[in-house]
Amino acid sequence: MQQTKQRGAMSWVGDVAVIFGKDLRAELRTKEALNASLSFALVILLLFSFAFDPSSEQTHDIAGGLLWIVYAFAGTLILNRSFVRELPNDCLDGLIAAPIPAWTLFLGKSLANFVLVLAVELISLPIFGIFYNVRWAQQGWALLLVLALTTWGLTVVGTMFSALTVNLRIRELMLPILIYPIMIPALLGAMEVTGPLITGKPLEGDLLTWVRLLVGFDIIFTSLSVALVETVLVG
């Protein structure tokens, strides 16, 4: 029989990594959420081409908003799966029983969702560029920063509410109703800054205000979720 390891002050990093690895491995093995989310993103991109003339200048002006609507909708499919994945076989019980703090469980799951949602975004971005004839990569790094900041905010809120709705009868109906209104500031900021970045404007001046908003959103909702997740998971 084995002894348990001495746990240092940074042992939570290991706990987060274990959960992160588990979720990512399980998802990559089935690719259920990933495939669904990607094809949903493609379908919305296609539908938008009917609503707006894809080649017109006007479409470039609304590109930021259009992209984030696609991301928000497609991302929800992944976020919804996050805790639903734990339902078969009562796996959630196994996780809650384990001697790791609930917030490390939450951060591990959020990180896995973050990577998955970001992957969907990065794959659909060039496709968007081709379909709508947009040269989106002119401010590549700044765009990546904005994608990462916004996606983290959406992921944290989505993962938290995925945990909160997981035992509800009508969770698929409740999750979008709960998370989209809360995501509004982050989505607004992202739309305002992504549009100019795609058309090649540098990240400065007014645009930085929106980046600050995104950082603030991320900090506030990450802290709230970390503080409250134990209450949500333990009855």
């Binding site: 588990k22 491995r25 399980a26 093995r29 089935t30 078969p88 076989n89 009562d90 796996c91 019980d93 196994g94 029983a97």
Partner: peptide, 11 residues
Amino acid sequence: LGHGISIYDEL
């Protein structure tokens, strides 16, 4: 050890 096996089907 509860009603569910708490084991992941995909792993």
